[in-house]
Design a protein around this nucleic acid. Structure first.
Lengths: 338, 338
DNA sequence: TTTATTTATACAATCGATTGTATTTTTGAA
DNA sequence: TTCAAAAATACAATCGATTGTATAAATAAA
């Protein structure tokens, strides 16, 4: 039933050629004659040989594999980043392992430990919401393996970040609401131990300052920005009664808030104009369609992986961070004159 | 800078204990005294030892890894299946590799070949749209490794399938439209070499037959069911002018069709009632909200992986297929009396 | 033809962990 | 105390591919 796998030694035995020569032939080394190569390759194909990557990796101490660690793949943004990562990885001949931290620090630690055991060559990571301690990542780096951080910036010194200018994007989003005439703008923010949400909040705050609007701390809500959180915070907003604008740090919470507010008879954008963040596919479909910030997710994946792979290959390269361009997609949810 | 990784031989040398004993201690073998184990474990921790999985896997000829191969992770259904797979895998101590075929047969072949080289213990697969030849999968199986098919059924004999009753679900979806009074129901179907879409189409056909409605082949559209396809087919529908119902074999095409039809002034569900398939998150948000079939994606992932792992572990187990329960979620898009 | 030089292939060690067998140590019964 | 049985540990081969070095074969120069 279950046939045995062919090794270079089987080929070696059948042909009476040493296994070292077989190995070199299969790797197209110039230490083997073209004629011998042809014989070996033909026989390898005939026997259905497939290289044992485990053995090869063990010997060479290289797995030709990179890992992407992120909160969860079901988010459109992350799925799109992965697509970009895979494209570059495939071009450069790398395998990709995808790991979900589910925003749990414990899981993230386990994942990294597992990746060390599996000797991946490098890691791309968007850290979990709970991550404040970087020891597990430093441990990986201490073996000379590179890490590139994307999406959620890393505050560690000397590490490569690929992200957008969250502060700037946030500033523009808020300014857009202000220009539409909003005076009382609420903000749905994430946990403040996440640098990303700090930056977005700061963009919001500074836009208000620029327009000389007093900061009202009671209009700033901190949560995990889940669907449920969006509803909970929308309820609170209704209670305060004085909001005419909402800037949410993600689309998920913005969308569930819009749905709740609509169900309570509040008109969007007439009563409350809304801007989200991420440009999830749902943002274009919801009514009113959601004004939001589009991140170049695919490009981010490509940039992050090419940066990582270049670090893996020529360790000399300069560790450089990149800021990609985001854009404000203006739709109906912020069109007060609508 | 880059420190060397600790091996069992380092521990062996430091403690003056043979590496075989160290290995056994680390694996909690009962051939090592508790006292010795403690000494070894303590030292291992102290030196920051982490098992080299490559070496271990090479020796044991087991990777404790399963692979999930599917068209693309950005589809909510697949992302949810993966979540289920990972839950079970983690419980049973398996790693999960996620691979996207992007519905390309060539890519799928490459992926399988790569998985063979990487000696994964088993594969969960939803085959690509282009797959009609199963040689690559048979090759994997020929080494004694199990494959479980989910979502898209496999017509190979003697293989394990985990899916819903697509025929039945389709029948119910169509019947629902008929009961709402639809007489002229169009169907968006997928490529007919995919068993899944054949089954869905048959459910649609048989429901019409039951209600003694003549089949009009010009109302059946075959495509990849992409967003663009939805629009193209919606345009064709408008041209025929005689449709009062639409059953699409996925939500993606149903939703883009709804949007296009609305933009053309057609009232949903008044003029045309619509039912989709998959229960994508967007289905609940679009206006009108979309009546659709919900598949138990998470449960499907759990079932598929537990079935696969049980095959890996006790090769004796009966190869059994499973049909999971799906349900029709009735929303506004089919409510003619609305 | 003989020797020097290049080219092709064979030999053997290695990567790190596992595991069957052999040896030493410990325990317990006589 | 002595010896057999059991327990603990050491030895050595192995998984499959890679790679530095050594040897053999082929080519070129003298």
């Amino acid at each position: 039933m279950s046939q045995k796998k062919i090794t270079i030694h089987d080929i070696s035995r059948v042909l009476g050629i040493d296994s070292s020569t077989v190995s070199r032939a299969l790797n197209d080394s110039d230490r083997v004659t073209k004629k011998t190569k042809e014989i070996i390759l033909k026989k390898a194909k005939e026997l259905g040989y497939q290289r044992n990557t485990l053995a090869s990796n063990l010997r060479t101490n290289k797995t030709q594999t990179i890992a992407v660690v992120l909160p969860r793949i079901s988010r459109y943004f992350f799925a799109t980043v992965i697509a970009g990562v895979e494209q570059i990885a495939q071009e450069k001949g790398y395998n990709v392992i995808i790991c979900q931290s589910l925003d749990s620090f414990e899981r993230e630690k386990k994942i990294i430990s597992n990746l060390i055991s599996n000797r991946v060559d490098g890691i791309l990571i968007s850290i979990s919401m709970e991550t404040t301690d970087y020891e597990h990542l430093k441990n990986f780096q201490s073996f000379g393996n590179p890490i590139v951080f994307f999406d959620r910036p890393c505050t560690l010194e000397n590490c490569v970040n690929i992200n957008i200018d969250n502060y700037q994007a946030s500033f523009l989003a808020t300014e857009h609401l202000l220009q539409k005439g909003c005076q009382q703008i609420a903000h749905f923010s994430g946990k403040q131990n996440i640098e990303l949400y700090k930056q977005r909040k700061n963009g919001y705050l500074d836009a208000l300052k620029k327009y000389q609007i007093d900061i009202d701390e009671s209009l700033i809500f901190e949560s995990n920005l889940s669907e449920e959180d969006g509803i909970i915070m929308a309820k609170k907003i209704i209670e305060t009664k004085k909001i005419d604008g909402l800037y949410a740090a993600n689309d998920t919470s913005a969308i569930s808030a819009i749905q709740y507010l609509k169900s309570e008879g509040i008109k969007i954008p007439k009563d409350i104009a809304v801007v989200g963040f991420n440009n999830d596919p749902i943002a274009a479909v919801i009514e009113p369609s959601l004004t939001t910030i589009n991140q170049p997710a695919f490009q981010m994946g490509k940039k992050a992986s090419s940066q990582l792979i270049s670090q893996i290959e020529h360790k000399s390269t300069v560790n450089q961070s990149f800021v990609l361009i985001s854009e404000l997609i203006i739709r109906e949810s912020s069109n007060k004159s609508f």
